[in-house]
Structure formats: structure tokens, C-alpha cells
Simulated scan of single mutants.
Amino acid sequence: MKQLLVLSALALAATSSMAAADEAMNKAGCMACHAKDKKVVGPAFKDIAAKYKGDKAAPAKLAEKVRKGGAGVWGPIPMPAHTPEKINDGDLKDAVDSILKS
């Protein structure tokens, strides 16, 4: 019984964290160019997760890419830099973690 309660609490915390990450990505404008399962202007989150699967450095790489912006990895359209005013460090970490779990 205790195991079931612990597992339920962990599942609820994960769901809450994912919802917070989704809210942060919406607020920061990520969803204007990305979607979870299809290419929009930028790649789908599931494609990003697949590309970086097993790469332990991926969270830091992706956070840096969001902060600095970039172009050429997924096509010719550049991704603008996203400053801490647009998405704070905690929300950025949650967003990257959520993307990598897509």
C-alpha cells in the first residue's frame, strides 16, 4: 500500500512538473514555432528528444541553444535567443527536461 501511495505521489509530481513546463513554454512563445509531435517552424519536441536520446550533455546543450539562439541544425530558419526575462532558468530547465521526455 505504501508503495502505491509513493508511486501515485511521484506520478502526480511529474504531471504537475510537465504542466508547469508546458505553461512556461507557452508563456515564452516556444509553442508559436514548435509542437510536441509535428514540425511547425521549428522541429517537433519528439524529434528533438529522439536526436538527443542518450546524450547526457543534452540538457545543457539545449538550454544554451535556447539562450543563444541558432540556425542550421534543423533548417535555415533561425531560432531567436530567449533571455532570462523571457523564460527564467528554472522554467528553462523544466522545459528542456519535458522536451527530452517527449
Rank of each mutant, 00 (worst) to 15 (best):
I77W: 06
G29V: 01
D89I: 02
P80I: 01
K68L: 11
P59F: 05
D22T: 07
V40H: 07
M25I: 03
K86I: 08
P59C: 02
G42S: 03
L92H: 05
A60D: 10
L12C: 09
A19F: 06
A50S: 06
M18E: 10
S17Y: 14
D91W: 04
P78M: 02
G29L: 03
A63H: 08
M31P: 00
A95P: 05
W74E: 01
P43L: 00
A32H: 07
E64T: 11
T83A: 11
A71G: 03
L62F: 11
K68G: 09
I77Y: 02
N88A: 05
S102C: 12
K38R: 13
K86N: 09
L4M: 15
K38C: 00
L92I: 01
D94S: 15
A60V: 05
A95Y: 10
M79W: 02
G54Q: 07
D94E: 14
D37K: 12
S102F: 14
K2L: 15
L100P: 15
A20C: 06
H34N: 06
A32R: 12
L4Q: 15
R67P: 00
C33W: 03
V41E: 04
S102W: 13
P43R: 02
C33F: 02
A14Q: 13
L5I: 14
V41G: 00
N26E: 12
A71I: 01
A35M: 04
I99H: 10
A71P: 00
V6D: 13
E64D: 13
A9N: 10
A28F: 09
A28C: 07
V6P: 06
A9P: 09
S8E: 12
Q3G: 14
A21C: 06
G72Q: 04
D22I: 01
H34R: 09
M79Y: 04
H82I: 04
M25S: 08
M79T: 04
I77K: 08
T83V: 00
S17R: 15
V40M: 13
S8F: 14
Q3P: 07
K56V: 09
A13F: 09
D37W: 02
L92T: 03
A32Q: 11
N88G: 10
D91H: 06
K38H: 11
Q3W: 15
A9Y: 14
K2T: 15
L10G: 09
K51G: 02
K27A: 09
D22M: 06
L12V: 11
V66M: 09
K93D: 10
D55R: 12
A9G: 14
A11S: 13
K38N: 04
H34W: 04
K56C: 02
E85N: 06
A20M: 12
P84T: 05
M25G: 11
G54A: 05
V66G: 08
K27P: 00
D55C: 08
K53R: 13
D97R: 13
E23W: 09
K39P: 02
A32D: 07
G29N: 02
Y52F: 12
N88E: 05
L7C: 11
V66Y: 08
